[in-house]
């Protein structure tokens, strides 16, 4: 039973980001299932407001959907802080297994408690550190780097713990701050480093993979509850269909972005397995400090899920 619906979906990304491919697939799937009755209108580049604002609009039933990354929402669902923890996931496959599995469901329940339905987890990509000073291949190399991070306590602590001078800054100011050397470094996924042209003003990129904060496809529970069971099922299923497409395009683009970054003349540094392990151990203080706010059960659960997926992969 489908009614004519216009789903307003906002996000802060540009319309050429892989999320757009995901939204397109999402929309096509919905259109097919509803016989053309359900349609998504997407608003790009924050034209309908920032992500937090949109999430609040979802909760009051003013707007249907938004695709934010998990980090800005820790003020609403503290458990999401788990994705900000440094060096949590080791690979994309592992992240997929945990997010699409039982742990993802567990987080979805937390969202329902605050009036939001999380339809799916999409990919933002592993975050990497780039800078204009020197190659970063070990923990000590971060010492004294002036790095821009998201306004998020776990990120700030992670980098301050490494001895870097971490300061939050609006995304739109990063490029000129790097260009004028007001800051030395920033951390973002390869795709962002490429599409925002940070390679023009940076010399080194390190494959730190220090965080994997997923995109969430959020829907207003107030509005969702008014939909028929068929409509609800179609939304859930199509968000997954869109997610499959989005992850595919994102991963493909990530590889191409890395190549483009290299082609632009940046030195790309890998971290040795031992160094990665060392960093993970040194970052333990950040885990200890933030576990109480995130919830001890949440951290334990995610580590259990990761262990299980590691076993399964063997």
């Amino acid at each position: 039973d489908f009614k004519t619906r216009n789903i307003r979906l906002s996000n802060g990304l540009a319309p050429d980001h892989p999320v757009a491919d995901g939204v397109k697939a999402f929309n096509a799937c919905l259109s097919e299932k509803s016989g053309g009755k359900t349609k998504i209108t997407a608003y790009w580049s924050g034209s309908l407001g920032d992500d937090i604002q949109a999430v609040q609009a979802l909760r009051s039933g003013v707007q249907e959907a938004v695709i934010p990354s998990s980090s800005p929402l820790v003020g609403l669902v503290p458990a999401l802080g788990v994705f900000d923890l440094p060096f949590l996931f080791e690979s994309e496959a592992q992240a997929d297994a945990v997010l699409d599995g039982e742990f993802g469901e567990f987080i979805n329940k937390k969202f329902e408690e605050v009036g939001i339905i999380n339809l799916a987890y999409w990919e933002n990509g592993f975050r990497q550190v780039s800078n204009s000073k020197h190659p970063v291949t070990k923990w000590e190399d971060m010492e004294g780097l002036k790095i821009r991070v998201m306004q998020n306590n776990i990120f700030l602590d992670t980098f301050q713990n490494m001895g870097a001078n971490a300061s939050p800054m609006a995304f739109s100011e990063i490029f000129s701050a790097l260009e004028t050397k007001a800051i030395d470094a920033q951390e973002n996924p390869y795709v962002t480093i490429d599409t925002s042209k940070f390679y023009e003003v940076q010399k080194y990129v390190s494959a730190t993979n220090h965080a994997y904060t997923p995109f969430l496809v959020l829907f207003s529970k107030r509005i969702f509850d008014r939909y028929s069971p068929e409509e609800q099922a179609a939304l859930r299923e199509c968000a997954q269909v869109g997610g499959a497409k989005q992850r595919e395009v994102q991963r493909d683009l990530s590889v191409r972005s890395l190549a483009a970054i290299k082609a632009a003349g940046l030195e790309v540094n890998e971290l040795s397995t031992e160094e990665k392990q060392r960093m993970r151990e040194k970052a333990q203080v950040v885990y200890d400090k933030h576990t109480p706010t995130i919830g001890a059960d949440v951290v334990a659960r995610v580590q259990e899920s990761i262990r299980a997926s590691r076993e399964a992969a063997k």
């Binding site: 407001g49 920032d50 604002q53 609040q56 609009a57 009051s60 039933g61 003013v62 609006a170």
Partner: peptide, 20 residues
């Protein structure tokens, strides 16, 4: 056909809540 006082309350304050 989307009258909701919350739109006004939310967007008004959000407009001023900008560091720039």
């Amino acid at each position: 056909d989307m009258f909701d006082t919350q739109i006004v309350a939310q967007q008004m304050v959000t407009g001023a809540n900008t560091f720039t």
